[in-house]
Structures are given as C-alpha cells and as structure tokens.
C-alpha cells in the first residue's frame, strides 16, 4: 500500500491526466462489454456467463477479417455483427430452452459454451496467441502532450467512440418504440406479452444486441491486446463486477460502475499496486452486502 504516492498523484496535474485518461479508456471498454451483459440480464433475467467468450470471439473474428481485408473498421464491424448473429443462434438454440430452469442449469449451460468456445478457437486459429490488430493508419501519429501528460490519440478515439455507443444505447432505450418495450419487459414481462408483442423476437433481439456489444468490445480491445483462448474469463468477471455494482439490468448503472472500476484500476495501481484485483472484489462485496440492488438498480433485486 502506498497512500503517499496516491496523494502525490492526485496533487499533480500530469499524473492526474495520465491516470484519468487511462482509467477512462479501460472503463469505457469495460462498459461496452458489461452493458451487453446487463442488458440481457435486465430483460431476460439470465446471466450470460459465456459473455466473455463472446468478447473473445469478437477479437478472433476481427483478427480474421483484418487478415483478409486489412481494414480495421471493417474488422470491427464484422466482429460486432458476427458475434451478434452468434448470440441469436445461441439464444434460440440453447439459452431459450433453459429460461425456466433453475440458475444452476443456466450457469452450467453457459459454462459448457465457455469450454467449447475456448477449444474451438484453438482448433480454428491454433494454440499460440495471435498478435493484436494494430491501430488504424489514421492514428499512427505521435501522442499528444497535455499538461505534462502523454495521451495517445487512439485512446481518445476509443473513449469518444465508446461514449457515442453509450449515448446511442441511451437514446435507443428512451426514445424508440423497441427501447420502451424493452424497458417495459424489464418491469413486467407478462404485460408485454399480453399486449401482443412477440417476446421471442424481443428476447432474440436483445440477446443479439447484448452479444453485439461484447463482440464490439472484443474487437476494439484487440486493437492493442494480444488474442488468445481463455482471454474472455477475466473480462466476464470484470463485467459481472460492473453489472453488480451498477445494478443488474441498469445501463446507466453499468456506465457509472465501469468508470468507477476503470478509475479504481488506474489510481489503485498507484495506491495499492498488488491489490487492484482484490479491490474490485471488495467493492463488489460491499455493494452486495450494503445495497444488493446496486448503485442504480431498482430495489428488490
């Protein structure tokens, strides 16, 4: 523990900018993935424990598209759509069969997919890790110097893009018909089906959107992270923490919680370098014990 260092950092502008921008980037990437998880939980009431594997699949699909077309934006798009499609198949073919089963069955079904997908990517892409996608040419420029801190231009892109996605999600949920139905389904699924809305379609659509977000997060993260089988697990754990802290089903909560975790990681690395992981779990325990519905969740859990 090094609280003095943390105090020093908070007192200097360069350190503050360094860690804040880093924390924003980590947090917003985390938000992309976690928002998908929380969206699915909010409407369908199931935890997609295989969400991290969808993130991994996004990274691999992006890598493959990149290898074929050498176009970064196309790679990200293909990964998002591909994983979204995979999500629909997963929901229709498997998940929808266990909605009424108990939690154990849902968890184990997802776990089976984690195991299968981890091996499948090895069979298809080999057991050795793959290199990252690299960043698009447009961002191949020297980093910016802001108040004594260094800020990579590409990180600004990730921050901006993720924020746009968050805003778009918010607009979708509050301004569109389907968004309103989605929120109604969260409150009262019976009423929605009573109104003659095809809930199967709604569920498949929500699963597609949630999976798409995981794929998008995976592809963007792969721009600077190496890709390997099993890379999804730490991500799904983080996403859970974000989801639980923010309130399960709450997109806004996920946004706040992801930033909170991002900052915890960023500043925690200075203050508690060996316990940043433990710190996240402690935060989650605190929330579960003191406020089980999460920061922005509805009460009742």
């Amino acid at each position: 523990m090094d609280l003095a260092a943390l105090g020093d950092c908070l007192g200097t502008s360069s350190c503050l900018i360094f860690q804040t921008v880093g924390g924003l980037k980590i947090g917003l990437l985390m938000f992309l993935v976690a928002s998908g998880l929380t969206l699915i939980f909010g409407v369908l009431g199931v935890i997609n424990f295989a969400h991290g594997s969808f993130y991994m699949l996004g990274a691999y699909l992006a890598w493959q598209t990149m290898a074929l077309t050498d176009n970064f934006y196309l790679a990200v798009l293909a990964a998002a759509l591909g994983v979204g499609l995979f999500g629909v198949l997963f929901e229709r073919g498997f998940m929808s069969r266990v909605y009424r089963g108990d939690v154990l069955v849902q968890i184990l079904l997802c776990y089976a997919f984690i195991l299968i997908l981890d091996d499948l990517v090895i069979i298809v892409w080999g057991e050795e890790f793959l290199s990252s996608l690299g960043i698009p040419d447009a961002f191949h420029r020297p980093p910016l110097f802001v108040g004594g801190a260094i800020v990579p231009v590409f990180h600004l892109f990730i921050i901006g893009f993720s924020t746009l996605v968050a805003v778009a999600l918010w607009l979708f949920m509050t301004r569109t018909k389907w968004g309103k139905i989605t929120r109604a389904a969260e409150q009262n699924p019976l009423m929605v089906s009573a109104l003659g809305i095809n809930t199967s379609l709604l569920f498949a659509g929500i699963f597609a959107l949630g999976s798409l977000l995981a794929g998008l997060g995976g592809a963007l993260a792969a721009s600077e992270r190496s890709i390997s089988s099993g890379m999804g697990f730490s991500v799904v754990l983080e996403s859970f923490i974000v989801t639980v802290i923010g309130g399960m089903g709450s997109i806004g909560g996920a946004f706040v919680a992801a930033l909170l975790i991002g900052m915890t990681r960023s500043f925690g690395a200075i203050g508690f370098p060996l316990f940043t992981d433990g710190l996240m779990f402690v935060l989650m325990c605190l929330v579960l014990v003191l406020r089980p519905q999460g920061l922005m969740g509805r009460s009742g859990g």
Binding site: S14, C15, F18, Q19, G22, G23, K25, I26, L29, F129, S131, S132, A149, I150, H155, A221, E224, R225, S226, I227, S228, M231, S234, V235, R265, S266, A269, I270
Partner: peptide
C-alpha cells in the same frame, strides 16, 4: 493481464532510464 495502460503511465511518470521486464508471450506483446 490484457491491459497495461496503468502500468505504462506509471513508467512514463517515474521516468527511468531503463525498464527490466520478465513478461513473456502474449503479455509481452500486449
């Protein structure tokens, strides 16, 4: 660890002349 941002920013602030690392494989590449 998939993301080294917070470590990298710390290195930049400490301004050492050199960094020694025992990272390996995909971690080192990232």
């Amino acid at each position: 660890e998939p993301d080294y941002t917070q470590i990298i920013t710390q290195v930049l602030q400490k301004q050492p002349d050199a960094v020694y690392s025992a990272l390996w494989g995909g971690d080192l590449v990232s």
